[in-house]
Amino acid sequence: MIARYLPPLLSGTLFGGGLALGGMTNPARVRGFLDIFGNWDPTLAFVMGGAVIVMAIAWRIQARLAHPLFAPKFALPTRTDLTPKLIGGSALFGIGWGVAGLCPGPAVAALVIEPASAATFVAAMIAGMGIVRLIEKD
């Protein structure tokens, strides 16, 4: 039973460690990236670039595999349409990211590093996800 949760735990720990090492748990660093007309900080661009390289390699490997190592099949998105819900959610995410300087991954990682400052964001994020589940119809 515990072996089932080991791969996601290890990959989540690696992801969180990478975010912390890249400085993405520091809201000031993220806001510095978004401040293109002020004191611009390019760190986030390097983190994103590294992620794009890793994913490009992962997509090439995935195309050659019959199924993932720890699951019977791949869970890949099949929809390609842009819905008002997707656009609205993306806009809300971007506004929250710009205001708070955190998004879900770095916020959870920041709970380990600076729990007091990240807890408010994480609590609001969990409350928002709960509200969406209550009002979502489809």
Rank of each mutant, 00 (worst) to 15 (best):
F33D: 02
R64W: 02
A58P: 02
L21I: 03
R31W: 00
G32V: 02
L19K: 00
M24N: 02
R60H: 08
G23D: 08
F37T: 02
R31E: 04
R64M: 09
G38N: 11
I57C: 10
A51L: 12
G16W: 15
W59R: 14
V30A: 02
R60N: 09
G50Y: 13
G17R: 12
G49C: 08
A56C: 10
G18C: 14
A28G: 03
W40N: 09
T43I: 10
A56R: 09
I53D: 06
A20Y: 10
A20M: 12
V47W: 09
G18I: 14
W59H: 11
M48E: 09
F37I: 00
P42C: 13
A63K: 13
A56S: 14
W59C: 11
A28E: 10
I53M: 11
D41I: 03
A58W: 13
A63L: 10
A45S: 07
D35Q: 05
A63W: 11
D41T: 02
G49F: 08
D35N: 07
M48C: 05
M24K: 01
M55F: 11
I57A: 14
G38A: 10
F46S: 07
V30M: 07
G32L: 06
V30Q: 02
G23S: 06
G17I: 15
I36Q: 03
T25N: 06
G49L: 12
G23F: 08
A45D: 08
A56I: 11
G38K: 11
I36G: 00
D35E: 10
G23T: 09
M24Y: 00
T25Y: 05
I36A: 01
R64I: 03
G50F: 12
W59T: 10
G17E: 15
F37D: 02
I57M: 13
P42I: 14
A45G: 05
I61E: 13
G16R: 14
I61F: 06
G18A: 15
N26P: 00
I61S: 05
P27S: 06
Q62S: 12
A63V: 05
L34A: 00
A45M: 12
N39Q: 14
A58I: 11
P27A: 06
G32Y: 04
M24W: 04
A51R: 07
G17T: 15
G32K: 06
V30C: 00
A20D: 10
F46P: 01
L65P: 01
G22V: 03
